[in-house]
Amino acid sequence: MKQKDFSMLNLLELLEIAILIEEEAAERFGVFSDQMAVHHNEEAARLFRELQAHEAAHLARLQEKRRRASDLPISVKALDLLESVEAPPYECVHYKMTECEIFEAAVAAEQNAVAFYENLLKRLKDEEARDLARTFLEEEKRHVELLENKRGALPPCAPLCDQDDDPPVPHA
């Protein structure tokens, strides 16, 4: 289960990895939206759906860029990427999730993407790919800023247990 050597990515491969990253992020926000809807948290479901739409729009732009860049078939496989980069982790959600917590999770996910591209830039050898990675890094930084501003406009998050009428009790 070895991770593909990302230091050797060329321009097209990097674009395809970025598509995988956005695909997973969009899919994850969609799953979270469904989870909230199933558990009757309509407000959280709506917000997650908006975040999904945002990621899906970014994904569509990258896919269009890939189509324009080359007629060659996609060379990167879904499991060439073994880490979730921009998808918030499954464990970050709770059935009574609030707007504030959702933005915190989204900010953390975008920060993870920033860290990924920063780390990648330290290793990437191909010059064209490095230019593209810089573009992605700047985009992700803008997303962090945008989401942080939205998060900053909200009151502080209440602790998870304060929102739950019947909180789970640790057993250990």
Partner: peptide, 11 residues
């Protein structure tokens, strides 16, 4: 749509 609890590892 899965009815598992949000946060469950089964997702």
């Amino acid at each position: 749509k899965p009815v598992w609890c949000p946060g469950c590892g089964d997702f």
